[in-house]
């Protein structure tokens, strides 16, 4: 921007700032600078037109008796405020302490004093935490512990007998379990019949014969047919006795 332009625009700003005291805007149109500066001429014309537009705005229409109404409302607001304050003060003045209040407050304070202070547990915890914080951890503790554990593990592997190893222990346990399973399954069907029958046998039954049958049953050599053929070889009295026992369930009939 040229020097002449700057001084013209300063004059323009001044005219706009203090229209009453400064140079009137219209008088600037006679400024010599405008003869050779179209830009500043356009600016002045634009500013003059803007002034005209701004001045053409109608003044805001005031509501009738504005000041009176505002004053009346202010008094109402102030009175309302004072009334509210009066009511509060009145209420405060009327408030009386309930009977026996001081005695109850003192009793409450005594009981609070008798109980451990709420903060005591927290204080103890704080002290513990403080002590814990004060413990220094030896350098490389974790590495040393791990190395020691690894060493112990290697040593214990060498020292332990064969059956102490996990795989061997597992095989032994499996074998025992299988044996117990076989033992448990095998006599299961005959067991109740035998015990029940023996308990109810009448006197005079040949005990040896019963033992034979028992053994044969146990080894699963007896089947219904085999038993019949065997029984047929017995003396008649024994047969009779066995039939009686059979009715009582000796042979699981």
């Amino acid at each position: 921007m040229k020097h002449d332009c700057r001084s013209f625009r300063a004059a323009l700003e001044s005219a706009l700032e203090s229209p009453r005291e400064g140079e009137p805007l219209e008088s600037l149109s006679w400024n010599e600078h405008l003869l050779g500066c179209a830009e500043c001429r356009a600016l002045l014309e634009s500013e003059e037109a803007l002034e005209t537009l701004l001045e053409s705005l109608p003044a805001p229409k005031l509501p009738p008796r504005l000041a009176r109404r505002v004053l009346a409302r202010l008094r109402t607001a102030e009175h309302a405020r004072e009334d509210a304050l009066d009511r509060l003060l009145e209420r405060a003045a009327q408030t009386q302490a309930p009977p026996g209040l001081s005695r109850r407050v003192l009793a409450g304070l005594e009981s609070a004093r008798a109980q451990p202070a709420e903060g005591a547990a927290e204080a103890r915890l704080d002290a513990l935490l403080e002590r814990a914080r004060a413990v220094e951890t030896p350098g490389h503790l974790a590495q040393r512990v791990l190395a020691h554990v690894a060493e112990e593990r290697a040593l214990s592997r060498k020292r332990r007998p064969v059956f102490a190893r996990a795989s061997v222990r597992f095989a032994l346990a499996a074998g025992l379990l299988a044996a117990f399973g076989l033992w448990a399954i095998w006599p299961a069907r005959e067991e109740p019949a035998r015990t029940r029958g023996l308990a109810q046998l009448p006197d005079g039954v040949d005990a040896r014969m019963l033992e034979h049958i028992d053994v044969l049953e146990q080894w699963e050599l007896l089947r219904r047919n085999d038993l019949d053929s065997l029984l047929s070889t017995l003396p008649r009295t024994d047969q009779l006795l066995l039939e009686m026992g059979s009715e009582e369930g000796v042979l699981g009939g």
Binding site: P60, L62, P63, L66, V70, R73
Partner: peptide
């Protein structure tokens, strides 16, 4: 004070805020 200045305050509020219904409340 209110007599002399309330019109000025009302006019300024109207020019600044536009035709709001509560301009009188704001003057108050």
């Amino acid at each position: 004070l209110v007599e002399a200045y309330s019109p000025q305050v009302y006019a300024l509020l109207t020019r600044f805020l536009g035709q709001r219904a509560n301009r009188e409340d704001l003057v108050q």
